[in-house]
Design a protein around this nucleic acid. Structure first.
Lengths: 143, 143
DNA sequence: TTGGTTGAAACTAAAATGGTTACATCGAGA
DNA sequence: TCTCGATGTAACCATTTTAGTTTCAACCAA
């Protein structure tokens, strides 16, 4: 395949950093923790902003959470960074031959199964809030 | 992201075709139902063969199932076509900064959650056998 | 022996990703 | 008000993956 983009993991990293850092989080500061280019960070923050998860102080600099940590789930982040379009994790091959009994019906049958699998994945993501994640992070860095 | 390769859906198509077709399934015949190039089909059949799911008559032509329909799950197929490496659906960004409390620990915390989500997806795939899928296909094409 | 088939290599085109540079714009503080 | 740092984009580039195509040697059954 291809894996799910690292945008997702970077976005989670960014949000955790904003949540835990007392100082204002500029894209430069965040880029140093993620170890990538500040533009990459800004691009992802842009998506998080569009999803209403964070807010950015233009000019002054720094990103801030727009919701409580326990109001943001991993699914929200996953959706925000457009890891996949809704209901579209699995690629289907285009236009099977409709004259063939298998080709004519495989799509709808297979798609149903795939939607179930995808729903299971998303359900799992929806179970985890950033609050839980940050708590675990704090425990680890504390010990 | 990127979506999960259509190899997966094509592989399922191929196996269903083999299961349902009375005549021998050559890559040309299959390619016509899938509506793609025969070489694409052979490449995927090669992977299914490596996974022990099908067997091919070299020279003569035609692919045949090597296991019972109820012994093959969608997870088997998913793994066979190497949709993703094991435990690797989600991409993690490389080398976060270990000097940062978040960067140092985000990977292990996040990865745990991702493995759970991936396990949920794979569990769902493991629930569906080709037998079920073929049954549903038959019902549809019969009606 | 011949014809149809597989298996594999080599190549192409398109798309997605991650990364980089450059720059206009904004806004808070001196 | 001016300046400096930060954001938001656009434009580019290299790499990887995918899907598709052509070509051809090897194989085997009739």
């Amino acid at each position: 395949m291809k894996k799910i983009s690292s945008r997702f993991s970077i976005a989670v990293h960014i949000l955790s950093l904003i949540a835990l850092s007392p100082s204002p989080c500029t894209s430069d500061f965040i880029a140093e923790s993620v170890q990538t280019n500040p533009v990459i960070i800004r691009r992802i923050i842009g998506k998080l902003k569009k999803a209403g998860l964070v807010q950015v102080r233009a000019g002054a600099g720094g990103a801030y959470l727009q919701k409580g940590l326990d109001e943001i789930t991993l699914l929200d982040v996953y959706r925000a960074v457009e890891v996949v379009e809704k209901d579209d994790l699995f690629n289907f091959h285009d236009h099977p031959n409709p004259k063939c009994p298998v080709g004519a019906n495989i799509e709808s049958v297979f798609r149903t199964k795939m939607l179930q699998a995808q729903a299971a994945l998303e359900h799992e993501l929806a179970q985890v809030t950033l609050q839980q994640l940050v708590n675990e992070l704090s425990e680890k860095s504390g010990s």
